[in-house]
């Protein structure tokens, strides 16, 4: 996709060609994000490094955002666009709540994000968005977007600098691509993995991406959104998270419909 206007490839007389020195309003701030849906929960994660070229600008910059009690958004790409896009989304969510006295639902937020992104089709937000949370029917859901608003609901998605490292891994482990069931065994069903398995996939994705991609590292933030009434025994308790990981529950933003959001943080290698 051509996000940048390309200069003409040739001039009839190169010596008279103007010296192009056009301001480039975009940058790429690295990092990576991913989300995986479960039956009645959703996991949305991102690393915390922000870089430009070979420089690490900061070791902690947020790119996963809690929007409502059941929706979390991850942004990746050009951080200035990302931050300002999230600001606009949050403002629209507040307006919606004032108008309708209820928070916007997941699929409505997904459609709204499409219109916000496509509204800048000819000067796009250079941001890849992944939205995760709980659908109205109580199922865990993941929506992924391109910078101009194309979107679809999926069981999992990786985006950002290490997309090419992580997505094939998730295709194999979540969609069971290139795997064969045992003869006579039930066929694989995508998107129904237990939380403990998904957490392991997320942690392994980011530790591996940190090893092989220079723009990924420093820290990791994993948001877990659970449907109301669901047990938290597979997240909170001794021996579930590995050494160095920390979990906290984020309080309800609104009146609280029973859905619960947890934030799991973990350090990543800093080199």
């Amino acid at each position: 996709m051509a996000l940048y206007a390309q200069p003409p490839t040739s001039y009839s007389d190169p010596t008279t060609a103007p010296i192009e020195h056009r301001f480039n309003p975009y940058s790429d701030n690295g990092g990576s994000i991913l989300a995986i849906a479960g039956k009645d929960f959703s996991v949305i994660a991102g690393d915390t490094r922000q870089s430009e070229g070979y420089n690490i600008q900061t070791r902690y910059a947020r790119k996963v955002w809690q929007l409502t009690d059941k929706v979390v958004l991850a942004t990746n790409g050009f951080s200035a666009d990302g931050n300002n896009f999230v600001k606009r989304v949050k403002q629209r969510l507040e307006w919606y709540e004032h108008a309708h006295h209820k928070p916007m639902g997941l699929k409505s937020i997904a459609r709204m994000i499409q219109t916000l992104l496509y509204g800048k089709r000819f000067f796009p937000y250079y941001v890849y968005n992944i939205l995760g949370g709980i659908e109205e029917d109580g199922s865990g859901a993941v929506y992924s977007f391109d910078p101009v608003g194309s979107y679809e609901r999926e069981a999992c998605r990786a985006a950002g600098a290490a997309q090419s490292l992580i997505q094939p891994f998730l295709d194999n482990q979540v969609y069971f691509k290139n795997q064969q069931p045992e003869p006579g065994a039930a066929p694989f069903v995508a998107g129904n993995l237990p939380l403990s398995t998904i957490l392991s996939l997320v942690v392994d994705s980011f530790t591996s991406a940190t090893e092989r991609h220079i723009e990924v590292g420093d820290g990791m933030e994993i948001y877990v959104v659970m449907n109301k009434g669901r047990t938290t025994d597979d997240l909170i308790g001794p021996g579930i998270l590995s050494e160095g990981m920390h979990v906290e529950e984020l309080g309800a933003l609104g009146e609280g419909g029973g859905e619960r959001t947890f934030l799991v943080t973990s350090p990543l290698k800093r080199d």
């Binding site: 922000q50 600008q57 910059a61 951080s79």
Partner: peptide, 22 residues
């Protein structure tokens, strides 16, 4: 905290612009 001409923002306990970043 830091801001540049692109509107890029970030914060850290130590910051430097330009050559100082290197």
């Amino acid at each position: 905290a830091f801001i540049d001409l692109l509107g890029t923002t970030y914060t850290a306990p130590t910051l430097a612009t330009g050559f100082g970043a290197h």
